[in-house]
Design a protein around this nucleic acid. Structure first.
Lengths: 252, 252
DNA sequence: ACCTCGGTTGCGTATCTTGCAACGGACGTT
DNA sequence: AACGTCCGTTGCAAGATACGCAACCGAGGT
């Protein structure tokens, strides 16, 4: 592990929450401001940071640049884009695309809902596996042994009254998800929101990502949410076809 | 300047162009692979890179995360979004939003055109000041002394037959741009594309960013392009109002 | 079974990074 | 107008840290 690099990356995280002054940053990561200055200079030379006026540093454009290249790398995102945009347009609900990344879920695309109520999420944000519909879909797609391994490794943080609390309950839920082909998060992550999610598949039938719709409970009750499932499945099927998926079963 | 950080950032740039193996990366930045390994590990722990299967490294999700936060930081982007999305929807042409950043133009938003012909650009990408419509708009908004300083500092790389080649010609062009309130790039950057651009203003009348429409020449001739200007101006005015702009002149 | 390729580890050394202390410039205050 | 404060910047010396080496390991391919 490289110390200076580690500090610099932490620095970026700190800068993410608004422009900061040199000493503020120094204090935040617990080093001398000279050190921060040098790190910032290096970051700046690569456009990772920019100086705003005199006494403020902000994140720079290299971030956008790399991020977009990284996103383009993820082919699912591109191939699913059209189908999900349509789904979002037609239903007006927030649509997410997420993939599994070492023990968590990462949002790789987001289409904002058309209501006043907005979800606190963001492309690149991570979320737990046990209390999100996308998490369930992604883990349910894995072989049973892997599922168990993951289920046991999860830290079942309780976020709402409905949050799943044990590996056993989680595994049972996954069985259901695998069987019916979609997952539900019945206000297990945030109190006022529930979601449905379904997988996007690739050429070999493997699950590339999970798409979800998130709806505030004030807008639609649980039955109303479930009534959206056919539309969701139509969209994920379209996205799957665009991603190379060819049939119903496994393989070609 | 911090050496290891510098190397790590260079590494990220290298990774942007597809997954690489350890030795490839080591060679690329001219260090021992052990060093690369350590840097990658640190980057990985912050989710800046991820390991793809056995022998491939790719950019990770921290990039998306930071990038989105950085973009949200740039208020112009949010406040202009609606007007530009409309413009894009109505005309079907590619719309860019760009701002000035130390001697270059940086794209901070992009709305893809609806035609088959796509432009090679990307949010976060940088472009020269002398051969882009957005560049002209941004520089034309600066006080005359600053304009001259910038005009003299530009390296007039010739990209097409129409590219401006001298500070004098550039300054003359800027005068025109400042006067009529919009700029044109008549295939000065890429041979087959021409653009028009206009400024987005903030509360004090200052120019926050430049919006542009890019159109393949095969789709629209020069006069057709100019015919789009009123629509562009309507959009940038709307974006300006959303950004706090209140009147026609300076000040409130 | 061998070879190659990619990744990983331990270790000593030299380098690079660090924190200190002091300076300078820009504001704001008295 | 002079002073004080806040923030950024520089040079330097000490030592922690990142570096490259060489050897090892594991997986694929021949």
């Amino acid at each position: 592990m490289s110390q200076s690099l580690d500090r610099a990356l932490t620095l970026l995280g700190g800068l993410a929450r608004g422009g900061k002054t040199l000493d503020e940053l120094a204090e935040e990561i617990g080093v001398h401001k000279t050190t921060v200055l040098r790190l910032l200079r290096t970051l700046e030379s690569h456009h990772f940071v920019r100086r705003e006026g005199a006494r403020h540093y902000r994140l720079g454009s290299a971030l956008f640049d790399l991020a977009n290249q990284a996103l383009e790398d993820r082919d699912v995102r591109r191939s699913s884009h059209e189908a999900l945009a349509e789904l979002n347009l037609r239903t007006g609900h927030t649509v997410h695309l997420a993939s599994y990344e070492d023990g968590e879920v990462v949002y790789i695309d987001k289409f904002e809902g058309h209501h006043a109520v907005r979800m606190y999420s963001r492309v690149g944000k991570r979320a737990p596996l046990h209390c999100t519909a996308v998490g369930k879909v992604l883990v349910a797609a894995m072989p049973r042994a892997k599922r168990e391994e993951i289920a046991r490794a999860i830290d079942y943080v309780v976020l709402t009254a409905n949050t799943i609390k044990t590996p056993e309950a989680y595994l049972a839920e996954l069985d259901q998800v695998a069987e019916r082909g979609y997952a539900v998060d019945n206000a297990e992550h945030e109190d006022f929101i529930h979601c449905v999610s379904a997988p996007v598949r690739g050429a070999g039938g493997e699950v590339l990502a999970a798409a979800s719709m998130s709806v505030p409970k004030v807008l639609l009750d649980y039955d109303g949410l479930l009534a959206l499932v056919p539309e969701l499945l139509a969209a994920t099927e379209k996205a799957s076809v665009h991603s190379g998926w060819t049939g119903n079963g496994k393989g070609q």
